[in-house]
Write a protein that binds this DNA or RNA. Structure first.
Length: 762
DNA sequence: ACTGAACGCTTTTTT
DNA sequence: AGCGTTCAGT
């Protein structure tokens, strides 16, 4: 096919560029992916071997898309397209020994990292760290992204916290090394190290990957920069694409100057600007453009489109979040009912994942199919993690973290004490935990029973270890049988075991699919694949459901209809960004990214009261709303509250604004307002005087009598069948409708009385 | 050693 | 509000 026929002159220029560095500044919706894939096809057409081309992206999803589109253009071309992390993992399997890494290394995800940091703090005897483990973990990650070592960190430490971070960092590194493990950042950092220290390797790779393409270059960090740089010394045929206005990963160490300074960094850079937008209506683009112009630290850029003006962008204010969710749900329902769109044409974006919960409820009761991208990942569920830990240990016997996860799963009578003795023994003799377990007889202080359990575990392990080179599905099945894990879940008294088994079935299915797609692959490949997979990768636009995701996850996607919710100070922009002008600009870019995902219709909303961590709070509208052009907006205040804030507030309650809603408003069921009215439940703990200022009024607890109905936040409704004892420590035996019988110390329990004999308004 | 309930902390975003 | 960790009872 003719690769150039349907391209604009600038697109054509980028596609036909062959040798030398190329910077493509691609505005949102400017056909960037099309340009990259065409360029790859063009290179192949010019006789470049697919073997010599490397295309790097940030997500597997983007990589997969690119691979597919290249396949359509040039069937059978074996171009390596993948993520930075995937590329580095592969490289380390073959070259890891140069940095002292076994080829069977384990990849730690963030949860593993945090666990390790906690363990390190524990081992160091730090009782009350001045900063949280999460912060330390973040600081270590940040240091790695900036290519800082524990030493350099210790060197520039200014206070106790910095010194602690540096110390933990050093110990953390040792642990990973001993466990033959790497974290996400290490994948990059180790490769950087190899490229720096082994000239021959670098030159070979530079020559091998003669043509390198990097997508989303504005989001590269120092380590990624160093890798790309090292692969483009002798053969600087490097093509980077990106948009500084869409840089949203600064918090993760992305370095905007990588793209801003690209022209100075390489000689004779060709720059191509793609400013023509093929995605959005004029209204949407105008709103995006107005907003982003408020960024000071920015290269001016035009956004042009020949698309129709379309509907104005609609801004709606709701009273509370439940109404926001219901309002959005109602609008989606009517859009679909009118026949203009399918559910899968619609996406709802929010700043933080916590906001999706309300929407789930609203969608469920409105019977709108939805899918959430992100949140608690499938692979993070307990039972999945357990089985995967077995796989990790089979693959890498040094993985102490995996060992400690599974040694007592299912329960083998190995408790804290036994485990601590084993750890001490391992540490004293420089053994891995598995080796130590093998020699459990020599470990001081271990009881006979524990020794036997450890030895049994090792025997079990050896049996499983023989499966090391088998396909993933088989190993998982064998593991579940031989460890007795499947039986363990079956025996679980309450219904949860079945859900867990169902999740494991899903894992088995995933493994089977992986095995089919990757002939000859082992569990090591399977583990790497799922560890490096992100929730977005599992997302599928074609499922006929509304998509619910964070603004970050939305990057690179597009939808006919987009809702962006929670336009409130503290949320968007997020409160953590208030202090820092750069971070504030990043928040603005984040909003910009969200807006420019929309093709035809865009709705933004906020609410006046939002519940956060259990607290209801009045909100202030996002400062970004003031930065949008009125001409392209309609405004609709459905909160029923007058408020002095902003010109928007004025426009709303006068009722005379020119921004009348264009469509009939869907009717809403009036909602009772629980907090404003008189009905409130009081917990037993409150009755007993949980607050420091009040003194227990013993009489109040008397309301908890046999026969009374109670509500427990977790177990739901129940009835008191018996009261045991007397005084403040009296216990209640509750028969729950769904969860069986349980006993509580009333004064400490979160039980609430319900029904007419229960607590009235106070 | 194991279970279940209370405590206390938090994540903003993710490869 | 929700989760992981800690604490207490058996």
């Amino acid at each position: 096919m003719d690769l150039l026929a349907d391209l604009t002159p600038p697109q054509r220029e980028a596609v036909t560029h062959v040798n030398g560095p190329l910077l493509v500044l691609a505005g949102a919706g400017s056909g960037k992916t099309r340009v990259i894939t065409r360029r790859v096809a063009h290179l192949l057409q010019q006789g470049v071997s697919p073997h010599n081309i490397l295309a790097l992206t940030f997500t597997n999803k983007a990589a997969g898309e690119m691979r597919e589109r290249i396949e359509v253009l040039v069937p059978g071309a074996k171009v390596w397209v993948g993520t930075f992390h995937g590329f580095c993992a592969r490289l380390l399997r073959s070259h890891g020994s140069l940095v002292g890494l076994d080829s069977s290394f384990t990849i730690y995800d963030q949860a593993d990292r945090l666990r390790t940091v906690r363990d390190v703090l524990d081992a160091m005897g730090v009782e009350e760290p001045p900063i949280t483990p999460e912060k330390i973990e973040g600081a270590i990650s940040r240091a790695k992204n900036d290519l800082a070592t524990p030493k350099s960190l210790a060197h520039r430490a200014r206070d106790d916290r910095d010194r602690l971070v540096a110390k933990v960092y050093a110990a953390y590194e040792e642990r990973l090394k001993a466990a033959s493990a790497v974290d996400f950042d290490d994948l990059l950092v180790h490769v950087v190290k190899i490229l720096k220290e082994h000239r021959d390797v670098r030159e070979n790779l530079d020559a091998r990957y003669r043509y390198v393409l990097v997508d989303e270059y504005q989001d590269t960090n120092m380590a990624q920069y160093a890798i790309v740089r090292a692969l483009s010394v002798n053969h600087p045929n490097l093509c980077v694409t990106g948009d500084p206005d869409q840089s949203i990963y600064g918090w993760r160490g992305a370095n905007l100057s990588n793209i801003l300074e690209f022209e100075k960094d390489y000689d004779a850079v060709r720059v191509v600007k793609l400013e023509h937008n093929y995605r959005s209506t004029k209204s949407i683009l105008a709103v995006a453009d107005h907003l982003i112009q408020h960024n000071v630290n920015r290269k001016p850029k035009d956004l042009i489109t020949e698309n129709p003006s379309g509907e104005p962008v609609q801004l709606t204010v709701y009273a509370r979040e439940s109404e926001e969710a219901e309002g959005v749900a109602a609008r989606i329902a009517s859009l679909v009912r009118e026949g203009s769109y399918n559910y899968s044409d619609v996406a709802v974006f929010c700043r933080i994942t916590a906001l999706t919960r309300t929407f789930e409820q609203a969608f469920r009761s409105a019977r709108i199919p939805y899918q959430i991208v992100g949140g608690v990942s499938f692979y993070e569920r307990q039972e999945v993690k357990d089985v995967l830990s077995y796989l990790n240990l089979i693959n890498n016997p040094k993985d102490d973290l995996a060992f400690s996860r599974v040694v007592n799963v299912p329960p083998r009578g190995l408790g804290k004490t036994s485990f601590e003795r084993l750890t001490a023994f391992a540490r004293d003799h420089g053994l891995t935990l598995l080796e130590a377990a093998r020699r459990a007889r020599e470990a001081p202080g271990l009881k006979d029973k524990a020794i036997r359990s450890f030895l049994d575990f090792v025997a079990l392990y050896d049996e499983l270890g023989a499966l090391r080179d088998d396909a993933a599905e088989r190993v998982i099945l064998q593991t579940m049988e031989k460890t007795g894990y499947r039986q363990h879940l079956k025996d679980e008294s309450r219904g949860e075991g079945e859900d867990r088994l169902a999740n494991l079935e899903e894992l088995i299915t995933a493994a089977r699919e992986f095995d089919l797609e990757h002939a000859g692959a082992t569990i090591q490949d399977f583990l790497a694949d799922i560890t490096l997979a992100s929730p977005v990768d599992r997302w599928d636009q074609q499922t006929g459901a509304v998509t619910l995701m964070t603004l970050h996850a939305a990057k690179g996607l597009e939808f006919p209809v987009v809702f962006i919710i929670g336009l409130e100070e503290g949320l968007l922009p997020h409160s953590r960004a208030f202090e820092n002008p750069n971070e504030l600009e990043e928040e603005r870019r984040l909003f910009f990214v969200g807006i420019t995902r929309a093709q035809r219709e865009l709705y933004i909303s906020r609410c006046r009261i939002r519940t956060f961590r259990g607290q209801q709070q009045a909100t202030a509208q996002s400062r970004f709303l003031m930065e949008l052009p009125e001409d392209f907006l309609t405004y609709d205040d459905r909160s029923g509250v007058s408020s002095g804030d902003s010109r928007w507030g004025q426009a709303s309650w006068s009722g005379q604004s020119g921004y009348a809603p264009r469509r009939p408003q869907p009717t809403r069921t009036p909602m009772p307002t629980p907090s404003a009215g008189g009905f409130r439940l009081t917990t037993a703990a409150q009755l007993a005087g949980g607050g420091p200022s009040s003194i227990a009024a013993p009489g109040d607890l008397d309301a908890f009598r046999p026969g009374a109905s109670v509500l427990h936040p977790e177990y739901g409704l129940g009835r008191i069948v018996a009261i045991e004892g007397a005084g403040p420590n009296r216990k209640g035996r509750i028969a729950f409708t769904l969860a069986g019988e349980r006993t509580f110390v009333l004064a400490k329990s979160p039980l609430k009385l319900v029904g007419k004999s229960g607590a009235g308004p106070r």
